[in-house]
Design a protein around this nucleic acid. Structure first.
Lengths: 337, 337
DNA sequence: CGGAGAACTGGGAGCGCTTCCAGTTTCCCC
DNA sequence: GGGGAAACTGGAAGCGCTCCCAGTTCTCCG
């Protein structure tokens, strides 16, 4: 009953009292629910404004059993994986879609053991209304955690080896195939592949697309040369490739970062692109446009990926049963191939 | 009292009952607080495990008046500003520091009006334990919202025109000065500046550093040529600069993206870098290393910026009174200057 | 003008957890 | 062996909000 105190936040009861209505009426008025007369509604609004009242989200969450937040968790041993601008784009898309549904975004970088443990607890608690999981790897601990979740979960990209009930993915195989076919159509016959991490589904799927296309064209696919989706790893892979196969005339890189790395190595080795070696990337991020020469690449709708994940999650939260989505890719031709 | 129901989450009371202890003992045991005998503590833990009990964060938050979350809000008309890898790095740093304090990260992209409104409500409600604000601009609506916040707020970079009580910033003026001095020390005398947005403090401060250095060297600073921190804007600014001042021999770009753009324009114009024109950037992001030639740039500790913001916020939440921080920059010389 | 039904109101019971506090038990030491 | 402190226990009161439900008032038509 302390009326002084260091300026506490006003509560609904105080609004109630000032407006001269009952608590339920005040609650209804503020949530503009029906069954409130015009007069009382205005009285409540006035009182709320006067007091500077803002509902306490925690109390509301407890009462409604809805937190008003959705988690986006990015897996990965190393937090630097998150430095890939890919995720920023996903976030932009997801954030916008979540905003439409009035949900907040909790971002979890599940890099350390501690981080993963917290994510596990989050998923098994009622700490969010739903979760989006990305970048899962072979035997990723998050896979099990997802199974134990007490909230709806949608995957961004499929985890390796299993196909979850709800996911949004990009047509990695198709994109890689198209890229490779393009290279072949330009007369390249000794086309190597710089793969992404083969413990990720995206890395595997893109190599599969490349191999399929090569086989279909009657060419011999190169064995996978693995990078880790970073520029330096692409440069290194290119150097190794050049050493082993000095006669190659085309390269499919599983993402733009590695494509840019390949370009750098090629430049250093005095192998003109695309005249001598043609290079195609994947992602169509800013780096592809900036690269020298600008990188021909497979465009994937990254922000849309984030958006659709969020929309699917919202649908799930609302009790609907959406169907998985595979987003199309398309080849963007620039100067590198 | 419905004992069936579609498998509800177990509550503390159920653990309590199974373990044969009172609710307070169970609570204490699970929070490993004192005043619980070893035997009961184990009984509680066993019961919790058996039931698969996970505390409900919302209920806990309501009781403790702590949400266990901190918000990171990024201002900006356009969500694409967030695509700058700069923010990803900040997030990595902040996320790690928050994790240490067992806080979750809520990410708010305050781009749309609706988004800003939600941020305002968040800050005035008890929806988080604290907030970090970034990328504020001239007359940014977030400035006022920050003042009305009911939670501690720390700024990442100072807002234009005012110096908040708590912030973490980078020595933008010093970094820009050092970059310009370096250019001058290499014998450049007609050094232009490609500025970042001048409605941001970082944009202004970096131009100020450049101007100071020019003046100190007895050279005439160029008027600000404004870009928006993106690669294309840097390329465009460079083109305009070349048209107006074909005789320039050095360029200070207020970030690496614009520096890379400048490089691209210069390459297209057949002006060799650094022999004809030397270029220095700012940020030391991946793009600087990838650029051709690799960009000499001002390194700023971005992840540390995020980390220190989070630590400062945690200190504030814990009732301490930390002091503002200005992080040092350092010049990284590569091949472009 | 009476009464059925619609519209509206407000008391009160939670939501699941923490924590105060008074009561009990245990333990030591003189 | 007794007394008091220390350790432990559990009942109960919230935290601030939503929402069910029973009660009241208003409307409108026969």
């Amino acid at each position: 009953m302390a009326k002084d105190a260091p300026r506490r936040q006003p509560t609904l009861d105080e609004v109630t009292e000032l407006a001269g209505v009952s608590r339920s009426v005040a609650s209804r008025a503020l949530n503009n629910a029906p069954h409130v007369s015009r007069a009382k509604r205005e009285a409540v609004e006035r009182a709320a404004r006067q007091l500077g009242y803002v509902p306490n989200p925690t109390a509301r969450a407890l009462a409604t059993r809805q937190t008003g937040a959705a988690a986006l968790v990015v897996s990965g041993e190393d937090p630097s994986i998150f430095a890939d601008p890919f995720f920023a784009q996903v976030i932009v898309g997801a954030s916008a879609a979540l905003e439409e549904a009035d949900l907040h975004l909790m971002l979890c970088l599940a890099a350390s053991d501690r981080g993963r443990k917290r994510v596990g607890e989050l998923l098994r608690s009622k700490g969010a209304d739903g979760a989006m999981l990305m970048a899962l790897r072979v035997d990723d601990p998050l896979t099990r955690m997802a199974e134990e979740a007490v909230m709806p979960v949608v995957f961004g990209g499929r985890p390796v080896g299993s196909t979850p009930r709800w996911y949004v993915d990009v047509d990695n195989v198709g994109g890689a195939r198209e890229a490779t076919e393009y290279l072949v159509s330009r007369g390249r016959t000794r086309v190597a592949a710089i793969c992404g991490r083969l413990d990720t589904e995206a890395g595997r799927a893109r190599y599969r697309g490349y191999r399929d296309a090569m086989l279909a064209a009657g060419l011999e696919p190169f064995p996978p040369r693995e990078g880790d989706f970073t520029e330096p790893s692409g440069a290194a892979a290119m150097a190794a490739l050049l050493a082993d196969h000095p006669d190659l005339d085309g390269v499919f890189a599983a993402n733009d970062n590695m494509g840019a790395g390949a370009l750098r190595t090629l430049r250093g080795a005095g192998r003109p692109v695309p005249d001598d070696v043609a290079v195609v990337g994947f992602d169509d991020l800013a780096v592809a446009r900036i690269a020298d020469p600008p990188l021909t690449t497979v465009h994937q709708p990254i922000a849309a990926l984030g958006r659709e994940m969020a929309r699917m999650l919202v649908a799930l939260i609302n009790g609907q049963d959406p169907t998985p989505l595979i987003l199309p890719t398309r080849l963007v031709t620039r100067l590198s191939a």
